[in-house]
Amino acid sequence: MVREIDWSKWQRTPRGWVRVPPSGCPAGHRWTTNGPGRPSERFVTCGCTVDRHHTLWVCPTCAMHCAEGCTDTALWAGTTVSSGIVGSRRGLV
């Protein structure tokens, strides 16, 4: 299966293309596209969609793990997210 790339979610930088994060975390912290306010980007495998992969953003303020396009954080694969990330530290964006 070939993924369609939505280039509107990407930004060109001197170091290449980087993904533009959503506007903020569910806890109310505002995210920026660069600098110290930018969330770190990871990936999580989840059973809520056929594709099974979501971009996982980690809030730089509260370390909330937020999956983009996910509908159920309980279905995250334990091997793709740190063991200390319990349900209260998982969110959706």
Rank of each mutant, 00 (worst) to 15 (best):
V20I: 13
V20M: 04
P21N: 00
P22Q: 02
P22A: 02
S23K: 11
G24W: 00
G24V: 00
P26K: 04
G28W: 01
G28L: 02
H29R: 00
R30Y: 01
R30T: 11
R30G: 04
W31I: 00
W31Q: 00
T32S: 14
T32F: 06
T33I: 11
T33W: 05
T33S: 06
N34P: 12
N34A: 15
N34W: 13
G35D: 02
G35P: 10
G35W: 01
P36T: 04
P36M: 03
G37F: 01
G37K: 01
R38F: 05
R38Q: 02
R38V: 09
P39C: 02
P39N: 00
P39K: 02
S40F: 09
E41S: 11
E41H: 13
R42D: 14
R42Q: 15
F43A: 07
F43D: 08
F43W: 09
V44Q: 02
T45H: 12
T45E: 13
T45C: 13
C46L: 09
C46Y: 05
G47Q: 08
G47T: 07
G47W: 05
G47C: 05
T49F: 04
T49G: 05
T49S: 10
V50A: 06
V50Q: 06
V50G: 03
D51P: 13
D51A: 15
D51K: 15
D51R: 15
R52S: 09
H53D: 06
H53L: 07
T55R: 11
T55W: 08
L56H: 03
W57E: 05
W57L: 09
V58S: 06
C59E: 02
C59K: 03
P60A: 02
P60N: 01
P60L: 03
T61Q: 12
T61V: 15
T61A: 12
T61F: 13
C62H: 04
A63R: 13
A63Q: 12
A63P: 05
M64G: 05
M64K: 13
H65N: 11
H65R: 07
H65T: 06
H65V: 07
C66M: 14
C66T: 15
C66F: 08
C66W: 12
C66E: 12
A67P: 10
A67G: 11
E68D: 13
E68V: 10
E68R: 11
G69R: 13
G69M: 14
C70Y: 03
C70K: 04
T71P: 06
T71F: 04
T71M: 07
T71W: 05
D72P: 08
A74G: 10
L75T: 14
L75A: 10
W76G: 09
A77Q: 14
A77W: 15
A77Y: 13
G78A: 06
T79R: 10
T79V: 11
T80I: 04
T80C: 01
T80R: 00
T80E: 01
